[in-house]
Design a protein around this nucleic acid. Sequence first.
DNA 1: TTGTACGCGTTATCAA
DNA 2: TTGATAACGCGTACAA
Lengths: 356, 356
Amino acid sequence: MRNRSSITIKELSTRLGLSTATVSRAFTPGARINDATRSRILAEAEALGFSPNSNARRLAQQRSGLIGLDCPGNFNILDNLFLVELARGIQAAASSSGYGLLLNTLPRDGGDVTLLREWVHGRVVDGVVLVLPPGFPMETLKILAGRDVPCVVIAQNDERATPLRRVTLDLEHGALAALRHLRLLGHRRIGFLSSNPPDSVHRAYTEFMKADNLFDSSLIAYTDASVASARNAMHQLLAVSDRPTAVFARNDVIALGALRAAREMGLGVPGDISVIGHDDIVLAGLTDPALTTVRVDTERLGRIATEMLLEAMQPNAANAEADQELKVHTELIVRDSTAPIARAVVTIHAGENVLA
Amino acid sequence: MRNRSSITIKELSTRLGLSTATVSRAFTPGARINDATRSRILAEAEALGFSPNSNARRLAQQRSGLIGLDCPGNFNILDNLFLVELARGIQAAASSSGYGLLLNTLPRDGGDVTLLREWVHGRVVDGVVLVLPPGFPMETLKILAGRDVPCVVIAQNDERATPLRRVTLDLEHGALAALRHLRLLGHRRIGFLSSNPPDSVHRAYTEFMKADNLFDSSLIAYTDASVASARNAMHQLLAVSDRPTAVFARNDVIALGALRAAREMGLGVPGDISVIGHDDIVLAGLTDPALTTVRVDTERLGRIATEMLLEAMQPNAANAEADQELKVHTELIVRDSTAPIARAVVTIHAGENVLA
DNA sequence: TTGTACGCGTTATCAA
DNA sequence: TTGATAACGCGTACAA
């Protein structure tokens, strides 16, 4: 048997000549209790180093005071900066309502949602924020059905709709803002450095360019999310006749490769060519020139999802509106890597290539 | 009263014609129970979507299954990349022993260790990893005294010793490796970009240089951790007669500023001047040239601290060795920003300045 | 405003 | 190997 190093509410009550009920009330916000006795109790508790045993409390209250964050397929949330930022928002919202945050971990015995099942069926958590990767099998979520544990799903907007509370990321919003920004600067030959597989940002680009009759498939190059690969892709874009005067990269690391390739070709950024990134990672503010990019307010995404969850956890509005959806959009951050189109290049568009 | 959406162990037992005790045993690893009955129970549980209520379990077992990470002064752990990496290691070690991780949050009512007190006195967690900032008042830790909640402290090695289990970071190890690396490449005029306040890395530099009779206070410049400020400091270093042929920066962001200043002065890195950073942030692998730097294996730091904690949490070895200390040292990562000293500069050392 | 007494769902002890 | 039952420490009707 363990060393019982902590006082219980019972000992405290006898010591004060009160009942356990009264002592309990002293720790319950809004309970009917005389102010004087409450402070007498709290003072004694303070002196003795007493706090109500949280495990007993949780059992009696039928709630754990914990919110879970689960990302099936991502064994360790903290490995992924996107998820860290998301968790930051969730943690902020949760803690300001008195909830703790629990992160998913490697399941001990294999199954991908073993932990989630334990969380929900064992009432380890009072609510769950679920980040679903593209293509996640929805049948797996049956384990949530009929339980008293609300759940909010975070997914990108290309995911097919789910009959759950969800917050989705509207990537098109920021992408279109970036493209419009370039058009306002006079650019017409706008390249796109895509990461495989093409997603809603890519689609936004395609539709935007087509709508303006500017689409040209040779303005698109594919790369993975490494500087080296992006550099190659950028060189490829710069090699086409009538080269782009601006390039939109699917993410900031790719944009960094583009910056490097441009420098290698002797092109000044933004003087000779404009570059826009995506995601606004820390790096983006540190490049030379500082990168214009599209910011994904991931922390806000997490906060909003959590607020939605907390509301669903209210005992009254329980099952009402179990199918609402919220959108969080991305936005353009203008820094120093974009500028009006250069005069010389405008000439090119007029007919002949005066460079190289 | 809440909707009781979950089955209890009692219902399950009557449904199976067994006692609650037996059903409970089915979920206890290593309990004396007939294999056949166990699988019968588990099958039925699976079918009904039953998991033992964790809150009741925690109360009966007198343990929460949670480990807490507290960093007094840092309201949000996830804001700080160092702490995130640390948490990653803690999470990994904790979860592989079946523990969950709880992060500190903004205390609701002000006090700096309010939450820690609640955690320990209320037995919210079974153990605590405590990251202490320099100068943290040790008296505050009285709240841990006499409790059955073990604690491991993580601190830098300049902290005065505490009578607690602790893991400290040996920053000198990597710093000296970096300096030796430069010496082996032939450098003698080695600059140091220090961040205020001077710490053990700074001290390691000073002692190393003095031991080799190379110390010169004009080789040291102070800067805060911004690119702009570091750039200025580097220009200052480059302006001294007999300029350094290598520079050691207190962190990678500062090193980035140094890289930029060098380029502005027309100096090639590493051809004309070598640069070493510190911390090995993601950025370090993406600069041009890729940055040689000192890596702090923060994740390992967290893992080791947690393993120490888990051992202290074993019921048997409870209070034994409550004063052990472990050291985790930093190490040099050689990339492309360091090279042997250039011939021309060697000439300078011979007597006259042929540059500028 | 306070006290009594029961319930929360499991685990652990002891006997069968 | 199984069953009956007492903790575990606290919240909360209900009554006073």
